[in-house]
Structures are given as C-alpha cells and as structure tokens.
Design a protein around this nucleic acid. Structure first.
Lengths: 320, 320
DNA sequence: GAGTGGTCGGCAACCGGTTGCAAGAACCTT
DNA sequence: AAGGTTCTTGCAACCGGTTGCCGACCACTC
C-alpha cells in the first residue's frame, strides 16, 4: 500500500502534524527537521493524499469541465486552452462528456460536486432553473449561456449571425434557411433572434436538429426543397453534413446553394469546398472560463467575446 | 453550505451511523426509520460526499482516462465508449489530455491517484519503467502498449500494416515511405517492425514526427523528394496533412503518390480523396479497457483487437 | 415467566490529512 | 537574573463519512 503521513512520521520520529506542515507550511518547521522529513518521505515514496487533504481544507485544486459532445472538434481547443491555463494556476481539469443528454449532465455535475472546486459548464443542455439549483452545491462558470448572477463566458453569436446574413444579402440571397441546433441551446436561440431582427429577409426555420453531421445530412433534403438559396447552419458539423447531403442530391455548393457554419473547426478548413464560417473564440473562452472560476468570489461577472466571419469557398452569388 | 450527514441525523433525531446505513446498507435499518431519514435528507438536499466516503471505503467509483491529444478524432469515440460502459457499471470517467508531454502525463497520473479507482492510459508517451513504477500507486489498464504483467488493450497494428503493405504491393508499389509517429509510441514501433519484415520492399523511414496534420504537412516535401510512390502514415491526421502538403506542391493523390493512414477517423471519410486507412477498433477498445479495469484483480490480462484495411480513394496503381 | 433469537441503532474508532492552541526551548533585552 | 520574544513541535479536535461491536428491545416459544 502507498505510504501515508503516519508512516513518514514514524520513520523519522516526529508527530504527523510536523510532517503535514513540512508539506503545506514549510516555513513553520525547522530546516533540519524539514530535510529529515523530506528524506524519509522520499524514501517511502510518500505523496499527500489529495482527497483527504481536500476534506479539511475544502480545496481540491481540480476543476471539472463538462461538454455536450467531445467528438465535436469545436471543444478540444477550448478544453486544451482551459487545461493549459489551469495548469499554470496549479489546477487540474477533469473533462466529461454528456452525450447531449441533460440527465447525464446533471449526474456528472453531482459527481463532480465536492471532488472539484468548480465546474466549467460548456454549452449546457439543462434548464437555467436546474443549473441555478445545482449551483448551490458547486461553483459554476457557464460557457455559451446567460444565467442571471452566474459567471459566464459568452460568444457574440448574434453579431456573428448578423455578419453572416449581411454577407449573404450582399451576394444577392433573400430566401435563407436557418438550420438550428438542439433544444436548450442558447447559441441556437441567439442565432434565431439575430436572424429575426434582420430586415427584408425571407427566412425558413428548421429545427431542432442534432448538432452533428448526421443532423445536417438529415435536413438536407428539406432545405433543398424549401427553395432557399443559402443556409445558415447551427455549427460547422451541421454545415458539413448539409454540404455532403446536398452534393449527394447533385446540388452544388456554392453554385446552387450557399452554406455558412459556426465555430471554424479544422475539418471545415480541409473540406472541399472550404467552409465559410463564423469563427468562435474557443481558445480565449477556455482561458477566460478558468480565470473567472478562480477569481469569482461567486460574483456573476460576464465576459463576451467577439466572433468573426471567415469567408472561404462555400458561399457565392445567389443564382438568379 | 451543503448539508452533511450530521445535519440529517440531527434533523430526524438519529445517530449519524443510522443515516450512513440508510444510504450504504438500507437493509440494516428499519423501514420506518429509513423513510424518516430519507425524507429529512431529501428535505435538506443532502448528498453523500463521495470524496469523504472514498476515504474509508477506498473506492471512489471514478476512473481516470488519459489521452495524448484529445483533438485527435481517434480518441473521442474511444472516450465515449469508455464513458458509456463505465456508466453502466455505476462508474464515472474523468478525462485528461497530456498534450503529448510525458511530464504532464506523469503529473496527471499522480493527480488521479487516490481520486479514482484506476486509470486507463491510452497511447502513453512515458517509458515502460516509469509506468510500472506509477502502477504501484494506482491500477492501470494500458491501451496501445504492451507492458509485462499489466492489463492491456492492444490493437493488431502489425496485422493492419501487413494488410496495407500487401495492398500497396498489389498495386505495383515497391518504394514505400513509412512516416512514423512520436518517440515512445508503441504503435509506431509495431508498424516499423511489421514493415521491416515484409519481403521485397524498398522502405524509406521518416521520423519521429508529430502525430498531427502539421506533422504530415512538415514531411510532405521530404516524402515527395525521396522517390517513393506510396506512403504508410502513422495515423490518419498525418496522412491528411501529407495529402494536403503534396497537393500544395502539385502532386496528386493517388495519381502520383498513394497514401494510407491508420485509425479510420471521420475527417478521413469526408476528405477528397477519401482516405484509404487501417481501421482501429476504438469503440471496442474503450469498452474493453473499462471491463479490464473493473475485473482485474491486478491480473495482467491482455486483449488484442483486430484491425481491418478499408480501401477508399487515396491509393491507386503505382505510376510506371 | 424465563430463555432464545433476531432486528435495530448507538458508540467509538478509523480513513489521511489540517490546524488552533499551548507548552517548552532558545534567544534577547534591560 | 527576571521577563519577554520568537521558533519549533506536540496535542487533540475536526473534515464527512463507514463499520465492527455491543447492548436494548421486541416477539416467540416452551
């Protein structure tokens, strides 16, 4: 079995509290004693048990990070940024995937409670009410959701959607399909809100949809049938699925239909045609989320990050 | 503050041990008492503190899962499979990413120790010796690495490489480039071993390389210059990077050079040309790894899963 | 009515640490 | 030399649970 603090104490004839102090408050112990303790600890391969320590101190130096779908290339850069930022603050990040299922999401949060000092909740599918209730047990930072009084990192989706629509209008499109995401997605709502405000457009809504390639594939036929000359898709995966579906039906992108996604994931850059998309600041969001969690005395600071339209090859002039 | 076992005990006038038993050994407590306790617990929103419980029971019902690069699309299916399998066994999986850095890998393992019941170590970059040492403190299941006496899930890379080379030989290729992965990768060694055994081939080795698109991009020029008519790449990401790099140089795939990857990730299927690849059983591996961890009384059972060649569009006849 | 057996719940030790308090030692100060 | 500091260390309670042991209580049986 692994050595405990008692073994070390016995090995060098001091009280456990002295060993404890050697690790958590070295300045309080005599340098000579300290080095004896360290030698014994090293000898026995002793490492403080972080879980036991957390029991008294209330701090674990871990944080949880919950995402809806780890297979979505949007998340890995965010996760890596959060991990790197946390590491610089002596924290570790435990990641978990909810499979888009709110029940799993809730269970994971409950599991994290007391094992981490806080949870970064990315693109949650739970209701605001539920999140507020769970927040009584563990601090949150929410990414891509606005909840009253809770620290949040938001991306300016509305602005991005506006830029995208202006781009399409500039290319002569008027009838535009809006392919939304899953129920409970704040991003999806923001997009719809922004689109509804844009003047002089003939919008067709499709949703809810799975936020994946299959989701895009599944609505491709409907989108083609609705007579739209352009599509604004919930995210890049959906956009890629759409393009795939349309091309299977012999419909060319961007010649016959223009497609814009959101996120700016890597596969979109490698796709042919290369995807026009609204870039989301995933890396900055990961970093900010960590900082907010560590700073927040529970205060509900909200950070909004800008988005940017990246025009590539999947959009073109509307066919007359 | 969250309610503790004491609050519940006080609220319904019983001893804490009775509350404890209500949750961990219900049959030992009188149904009437039990329901009183449950009512009080529900009322106070009490949830047992899993970390505290683990301190006495020695079981956390969590497992750690460590991967080299969460952004590599190979891992998400494995992760999801592991999570799903674990969930069915009342376990939760905490994922962490090492960024291909052995030091980070070691630190993460140390962090997981005592906070999880075991660690699934996928495609580790640490040395066998180091892994064996760390295994004294926490049970492991290793994926894609063979270590004496340690439970492992292996994929039959050698067989896959053999199939791939036979495929290329059948298409008339003789001079074949082998683009390997990072240092410390067992998979990379297996590939090289299999290739070295294949008779009558003119092999050119390139490595070590970053196991990513940039890694593939970076060696594209060298590969083109070496006169090989076909390439076996460490994984699909490298293969995609290679294809990208070659096409930037005006070299067509598969017309001028054939490319085969490993893994069978989604972007490979969406790429043009669609990638010929050796499919790795990631989902089965994730499931098996969880089962091995939960079954293993520390026994070193090894499971080897078969691979399969999937011929798509990135391979063709050698140019004469 | 005493003896038997079983159920239920309290007591207290324990898991592996942390930390406030106080005592003893060593060092100054005047 | 008495009194005051500062340093160092041990003691013991505590974090939030779990669990072996024992005694109280109950219903039954003979």
């Amino acid at each position: 079995m692994a050595a405990t603090i008692k073994d070390v104490a016995r090995a060098c004839g001091v009280h456990v509290s002295t060993v404890s102090r050697t690790f958590s408050a070295p300045h309080l112990v005599n340098p000579a004693t300290r080095s004896r303790v360290l030698a014994a600890a090293d000898d026995l391969g002793y490492r403080p048990n972080r879980a036991a320590r957390a029991l008294t101190t209330g701090r674990t130096f871990n944080m949880g990070l919950i995402v809806a779908d780890i297979a979505n290339p949007f998340f890995p850069p965010l996760i890596k940024a959060a991990q790197a930022q946390a590491r610089g603050r002596d924290y570790h990040v435990f990641v978990a995937d909810t499979d888009e299922d709110p029940r799993v999401e809730e269970e994971l949060i409950r599991t994290f409670t007391k094992q981490v000092d806080g949870v970064l909740l990315c693109s949650p599918r739970l209701s605001n009410k539920m999140i507020e209730r769970l927040a009584e047990d563990v601090p949150f930072v929410v990414v891509n959701r606005r909840i009253r009084g809770m620290p949040a990192v938001l991306m300016n989706v509305a602005q991005g959607a506006k830029l995208a629509l202006e781009h399409l209008v500039g290319l002569g499109h008027r009838r535009i399909a809006l392919v939304s995401g899953p129920i409970g997605s704040w991003t999806s709502n923001e997009m719809q809100g922004a689109a509804a405000e844009a003047p002089g457009l003939d919008l067709v809504f499709f949703g809810p949809n799975q936020p994946t390639e299959s989701g895009g594939l599944a609505v491709a036929a409907d989108v083609a049938a609705c007579g739209a000359t352009a599509v604004l898709a919930y995210n890049d995966l959906v956009a890629l699925g759409l393009i795939e579906g349309l091309s299977e039906m012999g419909i060319g992108v961007p010649d016959q239909i223009s497609v814009i996604g959101f996120d700016d994931i890597l596969p979109g850059r490698l796709n042919r045609p290369k995807l026009t998309t609204v870039a989301m600041p995933a890396v900055a969001a990961g970093r900010m989320a960590v900082d907010l969690l560590l700073q927040s005395g529970g205060e509900g600071a909200t950070v909004t990050l800008d988005t940017a339209l990246i025009v590539r090859e999947s959009t073109g002039r509307a066919q007359s």
